[in-house]
């Protein structure tokens, strides 16, 4: 009655174990970076602030505006949280929101929570903050415009990632899920953009000091601008390609060995990847899967290091 589920929360059972675990690894590493950065840069004062801000995002998602025919638009909040609180704090706040939605309301699963946090909390924050930060010296109009674009893109990025995860798990067909998800979220994203822009405009007008520009050095934003820009480019280029030519994307995935990742029984987690010395046994594929996860973990760790060094 108080709470309207957003269509991006994946429940348990819809993603394969491998996809869920890989998403958890990426999410956990990013959150680890966020926690160590936040512990260093903020005092204990910030923790109650972030808690109340998480409750704010949760409550703000209930503010809706009627669109037409009984449907209404409302906020998801990832981009807004990152813009007003900074990227790392924004990520932690969104993580708390998604965790409570899953734990308390079963809106989104537990095993797939890593994927949900990645789609709705981490990527949205990177895009929101990165793009907004890239115009930090500009006029108010430019800033608000860019914030709107970032909010729209963050929703699209979440929808695109969700579709890709569902497809890699063998739950949906690429040619249908991408156009359907992106089509719906292009509209939802418009609502998100409008609310984000007017909320920011309101804050800029009444308490401009809260969106303090001088609080972080210019150098600190560089890594975020890069990250946000890259993810945005990824969304902008992959979405049309995937919608127009799903077979093409499937071919690419097939060549990379992704496809069918979760379509068969779990003991064939990566069907083509068996370890020669173990033969084609269940153990062999489990070990292969574990190695795959470890490789992904190391790559994300290195990327995280790089980003940390830059920022």
């Amino acid at each position: 009655m108080f709470y309207s589920p957003a269509p991006l929360h994946i429940p348990d059972g819809f993603l394969s174990l491998l996809v869920s675990l890989v998403c958890w690894v990426v999410t956990a590493l990013t959150l680890g970076a966020a926690i160590s950065r936040t512990n260093k840069s903020l005092g204990e004062r910030q923790i109650p602030l972030m808690g109340v801000m998480a409750a704010f995002i949760f409550a703000a998602q209930m503010i809706n505006f009627p669109v037409a025919g009984g449907t209404s638009g409302h906020l998801l909040g990832g981009a807004l949280a990152a813009i007003v609180l900074g990227p790392w704090a924004g990520m932690l706040v969104m993580t708390a929101v998604i965790a409570v939605q899953a734990l308390l309301f079963q809106d989104g699963g537990l095993l797939v929570m890593g994927a949900n946090i990645l789609n709705m909390g981490l990527v949205t924050a990177a895009i929101g903050y990165g793009l907004f930060r890239s115009v930090s010296g500009s006029s108010k109009t430019v800033k608000l415009g860019v914030a709107g674009v970032a909010a729209w893109l963050s929703v699209m990025a979440g929808a695109l990632l969700t579709s890709l995860q569902l497809w890699l798990s063998g739950t949906s067909q690429l040619g249908i899920v991408i156009p359907a998800m992106l089509g719906v979220h292009a509209l939802i994203g418009l609502g998100e953009a409008l609310i984000t822009v007017s909320a920011l405009a309101f804050i800029l007008q009444t308490r401009p000091d809260l969106l303090g520009e001088g609080s972080e050095s210019a150098k600190a934003g560089k890594g975020w601008i890069l990250a946000g820009g890259l993810i945005s480019l990824f969304v902008v280029f992959l979405s049309p390609f995937a919608s127009a030519d799903p077979d093409g994307l499937e071919r690419v995935a097939e060549n990379l060995g992704f496809i069918g990742a979760g379509q068969s029984a779990p003991f064939e987690i990566i069907p083509d990847y068996t370890l020669p010395f173990l033969g084609e046994t269940a153990l062999s594929t489990i070990v292969a899967g574990a190695i795959g996860i470890a490789v992904v973990a190391v790559i994300s760790l290195l990327v995280g290091r790089g980003m940390k060094a830059r920022s």
């Binding site: 109650p48 505006f65 609502g191 409008l194």
Partner: peptide, 28 residues
């Protein structure tokens, strides 16, 4: 129209943000 309604919803979100922010200070 719809745009106006969206803007009002946004203003309300901004207002809620300010109230939450100030409340968090008091709580701390």
């Amino acid at each position: 129209g719809v745009l106006w309604r969206a803007k009002i919803a946004g203003n309300m979100a901004g207002q809620l943000f300010l109230r939450s922010y100030e409340r968090s200070d008091r709580i701390y």
